[in-house]
């Protein structure tokens, strides 16, 4: 799936992470497969969107990618080099990432000023005088530079998030991972920040890994989209292609969920709505992991695991009946 010829900026190969958990009451320790064989790549200046329900392993994938967690299996490569290569080389590669966290209020040390937090990545690089850069960066994200002397708790949620973005971008990282970075903000602020991110990307040429359970936001900002379910990639495609032709029944259900207010879709939603709860990643369903909730599921789905395959135009999907699902979507859209 990597583009031919040159190595992409970021490559993630068959990444797996298992946690050992002791569930309440139980004696034995069980394996929780939070991320189970994810591969992806990201080019310079590109945005890759990752969607999926809560608990499907998005944050874990993000933390694995930036090197905050060590993978149980698989590799993360920057310019073809492993980020966990021992010694300075690996450390240098891990430094190419920055991350904007899910919870804006927790992502800055409550005891330090906002300016000090924003300056931290630069300082760590050995830059002495950071005041000017902090001022420029805060202005860039639309904050009053005077806020630099405040403590995080004196800022609003939106301001905190902008400050986090300023911190993430200040040291000129190659890749910024956004883990639900706008989920906690209200709608108008979300739009503002999305636009800000797009503008900044144009100016600085940064690559984004944009994680969210909000399909609309992901489609608005991404060049390509990946859909995750229970630790696995079930669909990967260019954003345009994906919004016109989501192939996996899970993607269709996700999309229909976001289109809820439209009465025509409300009707069409009927059999594609997500039923039931997400199964536990401690014992995922056999065969296709989605079969317990899939409207198209057959016996084959419960027995045989669908592999990620190309359904044309570089559109990857892991479903035995992807085309059928897509047909259904097509008819729904025809009905509009």
């Amino acid at each position: 799936m990597a583009s031919e010829g040159k190595t992409p900026l970021l490559q993630v190969e068959n990444l797996k992470k298992q946690f050992h958990v002791r569930s309440r009451g139980a004696r034995d320790i069980r394996l929780l497969r939070a991320v189970d064989g994810v591969s992806l790549h990201l080019e310079a200046g590109e945005t890759l969107g990752i969607v999926g329900e809560s608990g499907c392993g998005k944050s874990t994938l993000a933390r694995l990618t930036v090197g905050l967690l060590q993978p149980s299996e698989g590799r993360v490569l920057i310019d073809g080099g492993d980020i966990w290569e021992p010694g300075a080389a690996g450390r240098e590669r891990r430094r190419k990432f920055q991350m904007v966290f899910q919870n804006p209020s927790g992502s800055m040390n409550p005891r330090r000023t906002v300016g000090a937090s924003v300056a931290e990545p630069l300082q760590a690089k050995g830059v002495r005088n950071t005041a000017e850069a902090v001022e420029r960066m805060l202005t860039l994200v639309g904050l009053d530079p005077a806020l630099a002397t405040r403590k995080p708790h004196q800022l609003s949620g939106g301001q905190q998030q902008r400050a986090s973005i300023a911190r993430a971008l200040i040291a000129d990282p190659a890749i910024v991972v956004h883990d639900e970075s706008i989920a906690s903000l209200d709608i108008s602020l979300q739009a503002q920040i999305l636009n800000l991110l797009l503008d900044l990307q144009e100016d600085l040429g940064t690559s984004y890994l944009f994680i969210s359970h909000d399909l609309a936001a992901v489609q608005a900002i991404s060049h390509r989209v990946i859909v995750m379910y229970l630790g696995e990639v079930v669909e990967a495609s260019a954003a345009e292609e994906f919004s016109g032709r989501p192939l996996h029944p899970y993607s269709v259900a996700l999309r229909n969920a976001t289109l809820l207010p439209d009465p025509a879709h409300e009707r069409a939603r009927g059999d594609t709505a997500l039923r039931g709860d997400v199964p536990s990643p401690m014992n995922p369903p056999s065969g296709c992991r989605f079969h317990t909730r899939c409207p198209l599921a057959t016996d084959l789905c419960a027995q045989q695991k669908p592999l990620l395959r190309d359904a044309g135009r570089g559109h990857l999907v892991a479903c035995h009946y992807a085309e059928a699902g897509a047909g259904e979507v097509a008819t729904q859209e025809g009905a509009l």
């Binding site: 905050l68 891990r94 990432f97 920055q98 992502s107 937090s117 986090s164 911190r167």
Partner: peptide
């Protein structure tokens, strides 16, 4: 998360201990 952020920023462990852990 602010500790993760500091680690990502490349702050070394002694500095993390003194600057982030100790004061809190």
């Amino acid at each position: 998360e602010y500790l993760d952020a500091a680690r990502l920023a490349g702050v070394n462990t002694p500095t993390i201990l003194v600057r982030h852990i100790l004061p809190n």
